[in-house]
Structures are given as C-alpha cells and as structure tokens.
Design a protein around this nucleic acid. Structure first.
Lengths: 255, 255
DNA sequence: AAGTGGTCTAGACCACGTT
DNA sequence: ACGTGGTCTAGACCACTTT
C-alpha cells in the first residue's frame, strides 16, 4: 500500500489539441496498472476505495469507477460489494479455471495433482527467446511437470521462465508447495499471470510422452502452446503442454 | 424498426421490497435483447439513439447507456461514434474470426473456400436432441461441408440445425451463397449466432476423414464440438468439426 | 448545423458487509 | 452507524459523421 501514485499531471483531451490525448479514465487505468505492476497492492489485497482514488487523482468518483470497471472486466481486479475492490489472485478456484481449460467429459472438474519431473537452468533457444522477448542464450528456468486427475496422468507441461525473474527457483521449492503453479509464482516471485495466448494442435504421442503418460505410442494428443503475460503485457512464461483427451476435453467459449 | 418496445412497467428495486428486483439497466438490457430476438432491428441496422431509447423507456440516457454498453461488450451490438449503435452481423470479417479460430502457422488468415458435401433432413438422435433441446425424432437439417484454405482441404464440419427454424434449406441454396455460413443463416432464416461453447479433443483420422481430406489414416486431428446459441441463449446449432492442424492451429486467448 | 456516441461531473440514494 | 461498491439522475461539453 504505497503512497507513490502520481498526483496530477492528468490532462483531458483539449478541443483544439494537437497530439493524441487519451480520456481521463484511460490515464487512470494506466496508472492503476502501473501500480499493480510495481506491486503497490499485492494479489488478494484491497486497493483504495473509489472515493479515496478520486481524491488522489483529483477526478470525480465516476471517472475512477469507469477505470476500475474496465480492470475488473479484464479480471485484474475483483469488486466485492460492501467490502472493496481487490487484486485478483490465482489462489482461488474461480480464477484457476480460467487458465486450466481441461474438464472431464463426465462429472465436475476435480483439482489436479501436480508432480515436478524436472527443474533446471538452461540457455534460451531461438524459439524460447522469441516467445519470452529474451536474447538467445539468456538464462531460462525449464520445468517439466506431470498433472494427474483422479490418479490418471493426463498432462505433461514443459514450462520456460525468464531466469532473471525467477532467481532461486528449484525443484525442491516447487515440490514443497501445494496449490496452483501461478499462485506459487505470485507469492514467491511476485509475478502475476494476467492473460495468455494459446495455439492448439493435434499430434501423436512420441515415445517420451508414451512413457510419461502410460499410453500407447501414436495416441492422438492435444498440444497446447501458451505464452502468458503479466501486467504490462510482458511475456513471462512459455508453456508447451501435451494433453490426453480421451476422458477430458479442452473447453472454450466463443463470444 | 417496430415500435413495439414496452413503455413503462419498469420498477427500480424498492428498499423494503420483497422479491428479487433487478436494476433498471438490466431490465432495459432484457427488453433490448427481446427486441433483437423478435427481429425489431435486423443485423447491420442501427438501433434507436440513446436519447430516443431513454425517452421510450422513461429513464435517463445514462441508464440506457449502461445497458447498451453491456450488450456491446457481449458483441450483440456495435457502437460507432457519430453514426449510431448497430446490430452485429456475421457479414464482417471482424465478427467472423470470433467464430473461426483456425489460423495459419505462418502468414495472415485467408478466407476459406466452402464446399457443401451433403444436406439432408434427418431425425434427431439422442445426442442431437440433447444438444439442441429438441425431442428425439424431431426434424433436423444435417449438413456436411468441406473447408479449404488456399486450395488445401483442412476442415470437415458436420452441422445439425433444428428443422423448424430452417425450413426450405437445401444444398442448392447453400451452394448458391458466397460468404460465411452464419451470415447466410442470418439473412435467409433470421437466425443470429451470438455465442458458442466448444469442446476440443485430439482424435485419429478414420477412413472417411482420410478420404475427404486427402490425408493418411490415423493422422492426428483436432475434433471440435460446438453448440451455438442465439439471443435468448437458445441452442440452434450443433457442429462437429474435424480439423487438420499441420499447417494451421486453433488460436485462443485466456483472459 | 445537427445528430450521434463518448467523457466527465456532482449529487442522491440503495444494497451489502462490518463494526 | 459507517464505509464500501452499485444504481440512477441531470446536465455540460467533446469528438465524430453526415447534411
């Protein structure tokens, strides 16, 4: 809860103006995102009330409201009537299922069991460097993990993280943690995953996947390549997943 | 452009009230959706201005604005500054790519060529009846079509539509039409697709798919089962697609 | 100039949760 | 009783499009 929020250089678009001005609520939205990025308020914490923010920024409460509304619709913030507005956290089932799209063909989604198979430091390949906006050869943490549902191995994820952001991340640390990986990243490294882009393809299981998942070679699998972004749209995770989809499917909504 | 919009029985939540009241803007939103469902304004047409609607409903312009804002964020309406607010239509590339998620691994998305392989009347199976909320045995239109990108056969879709809504739909009609299928449904049958739920799995190509798509049998394919909904959240299409994903992938955003 | 949506304000009151 | 977000209003002015 720092007091470091900027005070006043906000300017509304002027009629005869020259350059591109943005609306007040957009400027406030940007300031709030910067504050979140700086970690002024941690995931799960309340941000200042709307009237408080209106005072700080010297705008009306309705203008703050519009900025917060948009951030809430983007799931960076969560409004709770009567209580306040809170920073989103992955330590909640509701948020988690936004990023774990695998659901059972029958029955309700169950929590997955995670098992870390490997965690090491590598040098960024061209592909990894491009995805994470690093330079080839930069330090990268490479994690391989197995997800099981109801004891059935179902997903192998290969995860690549910028070494600079995840200093001291080890297999031991990962294994000592229960709960969602993104929650772990949040509390242990201050990295909040806010948004992701995925590309899905069908592939055949190679011998490696066959062994890890206990399935015949050439079983059709869903391959999911994900790039995750944190507040300022900076990519901070490349994840390549192999999903077995006989008992589970990837659910999606088109709006 | 009917004048059939209800006039006044709107009531705001009263303090000592008994049952569950909904906010004014929600009631107006519901009325607007009903109007869209009735076809008061067709896709592509402008709806009345905010001030006009405020007059009709006897509420302030700001309240109408909030209702329209939400419908715009759900992509039922599109705002155009200075011009008006318009009913969404599938006769626009922007809308189309919301429902066609296949993108080339390299280069920009190209329009697909559609070829109708079959179009017939069948009786609803249990599966189809469940998906479309029909009774087993009800009349259903079954369409099979092939999508090609740059001449390469890539997608086979099996599409099932409620017969009652699509009277007179024939292969000839379909073949005489250029453009997106959902645009065709819109203009020819007044059925607007607004939202869809998809389930994705990896499967192997069977002999049928192998022949249709010119690929080896057992090629891994992406199977996409979709249920599409129109305004009042009524399911009006079941679509089962088989995608070849060597040169293309299914793109998705997690927010 | 006129009409549309877009932004901003100030104030009132309601609903919810906590003290 | 108080503080929070949620709704609603009325009015002013800006920005974009068309006449």
């Amino acid at each position: 809860m720092s007091e470091a929020l900027a005070r006043k250089p906000l300017s509304v678009a002027s009629a005869t103006g020259a350059a591109a001005f943005s609306p007040l609520y957009q400027q406030i939205k940007d300031l709030l995102v910067q504050a979140l990025d700086r970690g002024d308020w941690k995931p799960g914490e309340a941000i200042p009330s709307e009237t408080e923010l209106a005072l700080r920024f010297q705008v009306s409460q309705g203008t703050v409201r519009k900025a917060v509304d948009e951030l809430a619709s983007e799931n960076l913030l969560i409004r709770r009537q009567g209580k306040g507005t809170f920073v989103s956290t992955h330590h909640e089932a509701r948020v988690r299922f936004r990023f774990l799209r695998l659901a059972p063909n029958q029955g309700e989604p169950q929590p997955a069991e995670s098992q870390i198979l490997d965690c090491k430091r590598i040098r960024a390949s061209a592909e990894i460097a491009r995805a994470l906006e690093l330079k080839v050869g930069d330090s990268v943490v490479a994690i391989r993990r197995l997800l099981s549902f109801a004891g059935v191995p179902t997903v192998v994820d290969d995860i690549y993280l910028p070494g600079a952001l995840f200093k001291g991340l080890t297999a031991d640390l990962l294994n000592g943690y229960v709960g969602p990986l993104y929650g772990f990243f949040e509390t242990e490294f201050g990295v909040s995953m806010v948004r992701a882009e995925e590309k899905l393809r069908a592939v055949n299981a190679d011998s490696e996947m066959s062994v890890l998942l206990g399935i015949p070679q050439d079983t059709p699998m869903l391959k999911v390549d994900r790039i995750s972004f944190t507040y300022a749209d900076r990519p901070v995770e490349l994840r390549m997943g192999h999903y077995v989809t006989d008992r589970y499917h990837y659910r999606n909504s088109l709006n």
